[in-house]
């Protein structure tokens, strides 16, 4: 069995070979350690370094960058799936649908009785989007502060354009709503804002889920940090 110093060296080795994220390092270190232990058992005269060189050659890479690139793609796919599954879970009767109905009635009142209030819909929605994105990002940065480590799993920046696109659609339709028949603009904007709130909530829940997963999977770095 490898010593703690040798395991630490393997973490350093992964960093030197282009693996900055702890969640990727952990799996690679275990693989390297298993393979080195096997090599050393089969060739007792081999040093740790010699075994590591042989094991690393078997990867067929000059560094781990291609492996990290593949993992990054998979992590993006994972967070998108997670986010969508949370969005879908929120679409349950009666809460969200009643919410949509109440919103439509409320918005109808705004449009019909006080168009000036409706004018503030876009900025308010925009501020909410910004708040959610900034809060989510700060939580994930807090994770890095607490542990001193980066995690590929928590890199969910690709989710923010989805909020931005929805906000842009709301802004666009709201700004031309006076040209549209009132019932149509209420329906379209109401549905978009409803979708937008679902997305914001799901984004925040995704951040919390990922945070909890990191805490559960890597408790050792939270106790020693």
């Amino acid at each position: 069995m490898l010593t703690k110093e040798q395991i630490d060296y393997l973490f350093e080795f992964c960093r030197m070979k282009g693996v900055a994220c702890y969640d990727v390092q952990v799996e690679l270190v275990d693989h390297l350690a298993n393979a080195i232990e096997k090599e050393v058992a089969e060739h007792p005269d081999w040093s740790f370094q010699k075994a590591l060189d042989v094991v690393f050659l078997s990867f067929g890479y000059r560094n781990f960058a291609p492996l990290v690139a593949e993992k990054r793609k998979a992590a993006k796919m994972f967070s998108r799936r997670l986010w969508w599954s949370i969005v879908r879970k929120q679409l349950t009767w009666p809460g969200t649908w009643v919410g949509l109905g109440v919103f439509l009635l409320f918005y109808r009142r705004l449009v019909i009785h006080d168009k000036e209030i409706a004018f503030y819909v876009s900025p308010v929605v925009g501020l909410i989007a910004l708040f959610v994105l900034v809060t989510g990002s700060r939580r994930l940065k807090g994770l890095k502060k607490r542990t001193g480590k980066l995690f590929l799993l928590t890199n969910i920046t690709e989710l923010s354009p989805m909020l931005n696109y929805t906000f842009m659609s709301i802004w666009l339709i709201n700004s031309v709503s006076w040209k549209l028949p009132s019932s149509l603009s209420i329906l379209v904007i109401g549905t978009l804002i409803f979708a937008f709130f679902l997305m914001c909530l799901a984004y925040y829940r995704t951040v919390k889920w990922l945070e909890k997963k990191v805490e559960k999977d890597y408790p050792e770095i939270f106790t020693t940090a």
């Binding site: 069995m1 952990v26 492996l67 998979a74 799936r81 559960k216």
Partner: peptide, 26 residues
């Protein structure tokens, strides 16, 4: 590893971390 990570991302596999010897294992 790319295949395992892809299958995990697609929801076909789930991963669990566990301490084995003196390191974490997935």
């Amino acid at each position: 590893y790319p295949l395992l990570h892809r299958l995990e991302a697609q929801g076909l596999l789930e991963a669990e971390m566990q301490l084995a010897d003196n390191r974490m294992r997935k």
